[in-house]
Design a protein around this nucleic acid. Sequence first.
DNA 1: CTCTTGTGCAACTCTGTGGTTGCAGCTGAG
DNA 2: CTCAGCTGCAACCACAGAGTTGCACAAGAG
Lengths: 110, 110
Amino acid sequence: MSDTGFDAVLGAMADPTRRALLDALAARGQASASALASDLPVSRQAIVKHLAVLEEAGLVSSARAGREVRYTLRSQALDATARWMSALAGDWDRRLDTIKRAAENTENND
Amino acid sequence: MSDTGFDAVLGAMADPTRRALLDALAARGQASASALASDLPVSRQAIVKHLAVLEEAGLVSSARAGREVRYTLRSQALDATARWMSALAGDWDRRLDTIKRAAENTENND
DNA sequence: CTCTTGTGCAACTCTGTGGTTGCAGCTGAG
DNA sequence: CTCAGCTGCAACCACAGAGTTGCACAAGAG
């Protein structure tokens, strides 16, 4: 229940460079690893690795275009994770509320 | 804009042990580090470190109760991050749409 | 055909950090 | 007062992964 790929998204989003990469990709809309490498202060190889992680998490998708590989953002995984987090937050509230009531009851009923 | 503590939340949530810890805390509603240590297969010290990270991210709060420290879940930071992610997903969609239209225009207008 | 450019693979370094153990210091319980 | 339990600090180990460099290969441009 707590693992339909959300952990992959979380792990991917946790890295600053990766978020910057997503930003750069959002700005370009579509770009190759080499192009993105010129936006960030890291080597092309590092970019490639990050893109692999992001693709694994479903945050980007790749498509070969001639001799280069174009990467595109995929919002669905991000959106799904957002919903999951929101639901989790709600769950916490619910549980805490339940426990708080129980505590008050015990306190009163003892 | 992309950094009001969201990165801290992301970083905190990215760790499996930390998520398990949050789960355990959700189940208990409130617990000390020692108590939580009995729920997870790691030492108390590891728990303490994780709790520190979680507190730094605003996901839990601590309160001294006599000789022990009680930790409680804080849903707001999680919820805020969820909203941020959702907004980001929307932003991606918007940008991609814009770029796609531009591309079609160029294609048509050339 | 040749040159250029982008990709893919592999080996390697090094910092961050998750995890451990040990010990000292408080503080409530008896 | 004394004991037990929980916290806090510090040193230390080990692995993951972020980043690099180097080279070989594929494919459009001239």
